[in-house]
């Protein structure tokens, strides 16, 4: 019973703070709410017997990605962001479509995704098991991801780095 209590509490936390992310107009509040939502998801991973993934979720998302978001939002000083409601029809269509999508998805999952309960053997997903599987079967994708990350670093530097050659004598940036 205790498990179910944790599940419902953190499921509610995840959904409510996810709603804050998309409804609040202040991006800083949105980013912090997303962190809370991700934390609730990490609790879900613990409930799913994958504590290693839960720790990774917090370290990668809360510790790196969301700090980067917060850093950029603060750097650009986006706190007084007001969205002029141009195209209200499209916006309402967006709300309508996504809620219809949600309702149908939940309906069909509730109706058809009924799966058998307890596993015959305990699900072991510790660091050792994951590492073994990763470096045996997934070594090529692993190396590919490392190249992807390198490409991302170079790309990010190219996009944001302001080099001296691109400015002419009057200080105006050549576009």
């Amino acid at each position: 019973m205790f498990e179910y209590l944790i599940f419902f509490f953190f499921a509610a936390v995840a959904v409510i703070f996810a709603l804050v992310v998309i409804l609040h107009r202040n991006p800083v509040v949105g980013a912090l709410s997303l962190v809370v939502s991700f934390f609730a998801l990490a609790v879900m991973y613990v409930l799913l017997d994958a504590p290693f993934m839960a720790a990774l979720q917090i370290i990668v998302y809360s510790g790196a990605i969301m700090v980067l978001f917060l850093f950029v939002i603060m750097l650009l000083n986006l706190q007084h962001e007001k969205e002029p409601s141009t195209r209200p029809v499209q916006q309402w269509l967006g709300y309508l479509t996504s809620s219809a999508f949600a309702i149908s998805l939940v309906y069909y999952l509730g109706k058809y995704a009924v799966m058998s309960g307890a596993l015959p053997v305990p699900f072991i997903a510790d660091a050792r098991a994951i590492g073994r599987r990763m470096f045996e079967a997934y070594i090529f994708p692993f190396e590919a991801v490392s190249i992807l990350l390198l490409a991302a670093i170079v790309g990010a530097l190219m996009l944001t780095g302001r080099s001296e050659q691109r400015e002419n004598t009057s200080g105006e940036v050549i576009r």
């Binding site: 800083v28 912090l32 962190v35 504590p51 290693f52 839960a54 720790a55 990774l56 917090i58 370290i59 809360s62 510790g63 790196a64 700090v67 917060l70 850093f71 603060m74 510790d126 660091a127």
Partner: peptide
């Protein structure tokens, strides 16, 4: 816990939010 040291790093990564917020 079985992921002991990772919990330390996870919580250490949270400590930045207090200061930035």
């Amino acid at each position: 816990v079985s992921v002991g040291i990772l919990v330390v790093f996870a919580l250490a990564s949270f400590s930045v939010y207090g200061i930035t917020t």
